[in-house]
Amino acid sequence: MAKVSKSPWLLHYDASSCNGCDIEVLDCLTPKYDIERFGIINTGDPFQADILLITGGVNSQTEPVVKQLYSQIPEPKVVVAVGICACTGGVFKECYNIKGGIDTVIPVDVYVPGCAARPEAIIDGVVQAVAILDKKREEYRRQKNAK
C-alpha cells in the first residue's frame, strides 16, 4: 500500500458469528492496532460506508438484513468476509440453520480466514479492500462518463 487514496469507512455486521471475529474487528480500532491512523473509521451508518465487513455465516433471519445493508451502501462498495464462517460456513456448515458463506447471498471481494480471524489478518483484508475500492471507483467513473 504505497498511498491510501481515500479514508475508507467501515460498516460491520454480525450475520451469525460467535462473537469472536466481532470483538477482533473492534480490537483493530484500539491502541494496539489502531487502524484509525489510516483514516479508517468504523461507522454505524450504511449510507456513509465504503467497505462492508461481515462476520459469520448467513442464516434465514439475517439474510434479508445483509441484503438490505448491502443495497444501502452507495456504489462503489467492497465486501470483506471476516473469519472462516463468513468465507465458507466453517464449523457451523452442517447446522440446519446455516446457508453457508456470505457469498451465497451477496458478492464478496476479500476473504479473511481464521477462527477467530486475527486483527493483523483483518487489517490486511481491509488494506486489500481499499485497493479493490480504488479499482472499482475508476471503473464506476469510466462507466458514468461513457453515459
Binding site: 442464516n59 439475517t62 452442517e94 447446522c95
Partner: peptide, 11 residues
C-alpha cells in the same frame, strides 16, 4: 431474537 441462531445443539 433469533438473528444468530445456528442450531448448534442439534450438531
Amino acid at each position: 431474537i433469533g438473528f444468530i441462531h445456528r442450531g448448534l445443539e442439534k450438531l
